[in-house]
């Protein structure tokens, strides 16, 4: 099984993300506000934008009624830098508007302050 240290835990604050290399692949390492790490292919499934140039933020949820906004999930949503599609970090990188589409993801574990990505 291929695995690789992609960065130190201290390099990414909760609520932030960063591009890294996993072999030849460009991966996006994300850290949610609870301190957990996640990794996805750093390329939007739509037209291929580099996701690390977008942002991690929250989202308005679809439980809202017309005219009603609820903003939550802070630090758990990746928004693409181009057309702004939203991907749910804690739900396998699924797109909010179309959960059948997801960002290709990698497994991640932390050992001694090393963030390790593996297949």
């Amino acid at each position: 099984m291929k695995e690789q240290v992609v960065c130190k835990t201290t390099e990414i604050e909760p609520g932030e993300m960063k591009a890294a290399h996993f072999g030849k692949q460009n991966v996006l390492v994300c850290r949610t506000l609870d301190g957990e790490f996640y990794a996805f292919l750093n390329q939007c499934t739509h037209q291929g934008a580099p996701l690390d140039k977008g942002m991690i933020c929250g989202a308005t949820t679809n439980e809202s009624k017309p005219g009603d906004y609820r903003y939550c999930r802070k630090g758990e949503i990746i928004r693409c830098p181009w057309h702004g599609r939203e991907f749910d970090i804690k739900d396998e990188g699924r797109m909010l508007a179309n959960p059948n589409k997801k960002l290709p993801s990698y497994k991640v574990r932390v050992e001694d302050q090393n963030v390790i990505v593996y297949k």
């Binding site: 934008a49 580099p50 140039k53 942002m55 928004r79 693409c80 830098p81 181009w82 057309h83 702004g84």
Partner: peptide, 11 residues
């Protein structure tokens, strides 16, 4: 506000 950097590509 349509996207991350308003009406521009964020990158």
């Amino acid at each position: 506000q349509p996207s991350v950097a308003g009406v521009d590509r964020a990158d």
